[in-house]
Amino acid sequence: MRVANRSPRAVIGTGLKYVVGFLACVWMLFPIYWTLTTAFKTREAILGSTPVFVPTLITFEHFRTIFSGSVDIQANILNSVLVAVAAVGIGILIGVPAAYALSRMDVPRKGDIGFWILSTRMAPPLAILIPLVGFYFAAGIGQGLIGLTVTHLLITVPLIIWIVKGFIDDLPDSLEESAMVDGCNRLQALRTVVFPLVAPGVAAAAFIAFIFSWNNYVLALYLTTGESATLPIAVSNSVGTYSIQWGQLGAAVTVTILPPVVLSLLIRNYLVAGMTMGAVKG
């Protein structure tokens, strides 16, 4: 009935909207769908000249390969979790206070320091890797999770500082001031007033930092060894010298993207809230 009240133009408009949305979703989803289904296809189906859009013959062969065959993906998962969680955790611990100081306190040359922090992320890793690897070997953290985690702080800390800083910028000064008038010192005001309010922003920042740490391949390649390798290395290892094992690749990718996807669903509301408030002023 409501449709009847609309002008034909509006109906076309609505139709168009669905079409655009549908196409955009297909564009975003199809490559992922294709990879996920590849993980369950037989080799014949993957390499056949007629693509199989909906696999009817499902195989778990490729998952068996990566979980109990020649690949040790359990260790990769564990390493990835350890590194990303530690890098994000430490990132929050040191990044949030820094963001607060940059936003609220009288730090000399604030702008320059802020930009320098952002710019640490601009160096192409390949340019600094050879010196970095030498440096880490000299420091005795050559090829282990500690070295990798420390390096991942380069990914997480600037991101967290920038997103959380923008978020704190957005809070009215009066909140802390009134808390301080009430007799809190600054630390207390932070704990009781500022932190609870920035929590969604921190969650959003942590999530984005997590994704970038989780997905990092270049650093892991040079800074880990067999036992300390992370998931993107497992993905890369499906490229054999003579053939790419597409099924194994699909399975490894499935395992790799599952945690970020689940996490994004879990914190989806925080994410939007955090992004909304956090990034307004950068």
């Binding site: 955009a24 975003m28 993905v235 790419i244 690749l249 990718v253 790799t256």
Partner: peptide
Amino acid sequence: IVRTIFVLPMLVTPIATALMWRLM
């Protein structure tokens, strides 16, 4: 729903993205 879908490609590790597209 659409928002969730629109974020997905960003979650894929770039090396996987590259190999996926190479396959396609």
